[in-house]
Nucleic acid binder design. Structure first.
Length: 636
RNA sequence: GGGCAUGUGGCGUAAUUUGGAUAGCGCACCUGGCUUCGGACCAGGGGGUUGCGGGUUCAAAUCCCGUCAUGCCCGCCA
């Protein structure tokens, strides 16, 4: 087939179509001013009865040449070299539409899927560049609530996507174990007189809420800030104990993470950033380069600040002349959160070579998890070329401050390599998820924690599995229910584009029908059953006659399968897992239609082709499942 | 006051970066389909002035201007 190379079918098709259109344009109009990019932008996927590839370029030519779009389209179609992979070109309403040779194309797509297997639709886009992805950075004093879950699922899936798109990915979690919040929980742990019970993160979260109640009533402020001071000094018994409690809490939070299939490579503790003297180095550099200044007089006397006057043109956020400077280091010498974030990002992007000590925390989900630690070995984390931060959109301003300081330091290019994936926060109807007030505890029987949500989903899946009577073994049933419940929630949380705010509803979070994870899984299991019944094996099927390809749902499915890599690249470059869930829905729906209308086992001459198509669909579905973290079950 | 998001049938969402054909899908609602590969399914139907008002264009959900609503940020909190 002319010019068609393996590995990127729909992209190749588009490229060849664009080339052919461009040639045809220049044949018909000598100086049209149309270039390759213009043609590529004009290409779209038409409705199926209009062909397989479409260009609206005739409209553009009509304008510049003062002719009718229809006439231009006809002229272009006339000059279009109709050769493989195309079989026909038609003009419709000013559009130039081409039809693909469905038999040859189906052959090629399926052969490529079989050849690439689990790597099918992966991409070299990232060129092996190292990306450090940060999520979800929950304070170690409470359980994950459904908002943290959105963050973690986005981070996890974006990491999968970047990895599949050819980046070297490091999954990092920032543990903010200093600060007032932790001191408050620590005080509660010591003074409330409650013994830990149940899951530690949940218990600690409740202590935190209780402390906040008491702070409103009595005067605990002094006592708690005293505690914080001891914690920050690092060498005290309090610091050691506080860290221990935080670690115990993170342990419990990570149990939640694993239940959802969320993993990390490394935890970076805020207290270790301070201990490793990263902060001091970063501040020294920033001041030496004039990005930060120490004030000796005025309202910020004694502070280290960034002069907002110097960064007005960086972003509109800084344009307000009433805001003159941003405090980075307080007058008492303690660092703000932003200060630590500046230092941390300099480390992430290799601008400070300082190394942490790490200890291994064992094998988690097939990968070794490390944590920064007071003592331990060296590892090669950090020094990435891109830092992707999955952080709520509310934190836009402090993220911009970090970038602004980078620019003032002369790290303009690096500042652009800090990516804030600003996701819309999750709210609940008529309430807040505040950790301080305990909104995550809910008011009725169901808490808005990630754990409670999973319990509900698994229970619902258990009921459905029991009702289906496909599985009788109770242990198996439990396993399946866990997979279905987890996948349902993952799909539901990922299917909305990250930037949009979400109002949580139990009903839609536990959706198992239509646009849902279980629907995709169910369809996959049905496909698998057919191959089982037919005794199919990829190796045993032998040569297939692709004459059996019709222009029905079989070819619609083929076309979709060919688009997988484009989907992955779009999703990765936009940090948007919902591009994948959308595609999965389309793919699943296309397969369901195929399944409904085109029998496989009893289809005579078409049987071989249809079985290979089915196998190819399963392979692609499985690859996409992996990216968003839903399980490919054989039965459910 | 300044800034940033978001706004698409009753509800939830896609398409907005790069303007193109009848705004795609799911839930809910109505109708039909299991002795034939798994009904967590499929087919058909009703339901839309894409917040509102202007503008640009052969063509606007998409670009520009204005405006409204909601949320968030503008701290020596994190």
């Amino acid at each position: 087939m002319r010019g068609l190379t393996m590995g990127a079918q729909s992209k190749e098709l588009k490229r060849i179509f664009a080339e052919s259109v461009l040639t045809a344009v220049s044949k018909a109009y000598s100086d049209s001013g149309i270039d390759t990019q213009a043609v590529i932008n004009s290409i779209s996927k038409p409705r199926k009865d209009y062909g397989d590839m479409s260009s609206s370029i005739a409209f553009r030519i009509a304008k510049s040449k003062g002719v009718k779009p229809m006439d231009a389209a006809v002229a272009i179609a006339k000059g279009f070299d109709v050769a493989a992979p195309f079989t026909e070109v038609k003009v419709m309403g000013g559009y130039v539409n081409a039809y693909v040779d469905e038999k040859a194309y189906a052959h090629m797509v399926i052969a490529d899927i079989e050849k690439e297997g689990d790597r099918y639709a992966s991409s070299g886009m990232g060129k092996g560049e190292k990306v450090m992805v940060e999520y979800p950075a929950v304070n170690p004093n409470k359980p994950w609530h459904i908002g943290h879950l959105r963050n973690a699922l986005l981070g996890d899936s974006i990491s999968n996507l970047l990895d599949f798109a050819g980046y070297k990915v490091e999954r990092e979690d920032y543990i903010d174990d200093l600060g007032l919040q932790i001191a408050e929980s620590f005080w509660g742990y010591r003074n409330l007189g409650n013994a830990p019970e149940g899951k530690f993160d949940e218990w600690l979260g409740k202590q935190y809420v209780e402390v906040n109640k008491r702070m409103k009533e009595g005067n605990l402020g002094g006592e708690i800030s005293g505690l914080l001071k001891l914690m920050e000094e690092g060498d005290s018994e309090e610091a050691r104990q506080a860290r221990q409690i935080s670690e115990r809490c993170v342990d419990a939070q990570y149990d939640t993470a694993y239940a959802y299939g969320i993993y990390h490579d490394v935890m970076i503790w805020e207290s270790d950033i301070v201990k490793a003297r990263l902060l001091q180095k970063a501040l020294d550099m920033a001041m030496a380069r004039g990005a930060l200044e120490r004030r000796t007089a005025g309202k910020n006397a004694g502070c280290v600040v960034m002069d907002l006057g110097k960064v007005r043109d960086f972003a509109k956020d800084f344009e307000n002349p009433e805001e003159t400077e941003k405090v980075i280091v307080r007058s008492d010498g303690t660092a703000t959160y932003v200060a630590k974030d500046i230092a941390f990002h300099m480390w992430k992007l290799g601008l400070i070579k300082d190394e942490f000590s790490y200890k291994g925390l064992g094998d988690h989900g097939g990968r070794m998890l490390y944590s920064t630690s007071a003592s331990g070995g060296r590892e090669s984390f950090g020094n990435a070329s891109i830092a992707v931060n999955v952080i709520g959109s509310a934190q836009r301003y402090p993220q911009l401050i970090v970038k602004a300081v980078f620019r003032l330091m002369g790290y303009g290019t690096e500042s652009e390599r800090i990516v804030h994936v600003a996701y819309g926060e999750v709210s609940i109807e008529g309430g807040t998820l505040s950790g301080r007030k305990g909104g995550w505890m809910g008011d009725g029987d169901k808490a808005f924690t990630a754990d409670a949500l999973l319990r509900e989903a698994v229970q619902k899946a258990l009921d459905a599995t029991a009702a289906s009577k496909r599985i009788s073994d109770s242990k198996m049933m439990e396993q399946v229910a866990r997979a279905v419940g987890k996948s349902a929630i993952r799909f539901e949380f990922l299917r909305t584009s990250p930037g949009k705010p979400v109002v949580f509803s139990w009903k839609s979070a536990l959706n198992f029908e239509g646009n849902s994870g279980p629907y995709c899984m169910y369809t996959f299991a049905r496909a698998m059953r057919i191959l089982e019944k037919a005794g199919y094996s990829r190796e045993g099927i032998g040569a297939i006659d692709f004459k059996a390809v019709e222009r029905g749902y079989d070819f619609e499915l083929v076309k979709l399968l060919g688009e997988a890599q484009e989907v992955v690249e779009k999703a990765a470059s936009e940090y948007s897992p919902n591009v994948v869930t959308d595609y999965l829905m389309e793919l699943t729906s296309a397969f369901s239609k195929f399944y409904e209308t085109m029998p496989v086992i009893s289809s005579g001459a078409a049987r071989g082709f249809r079985m290979r198509l089915l196998d190819a669909y399963m392979q692609v579905a499985k690859n996409m499942f992996g990216l968003v973290g839903i399980d490919a079950l054989a039965s459910m």
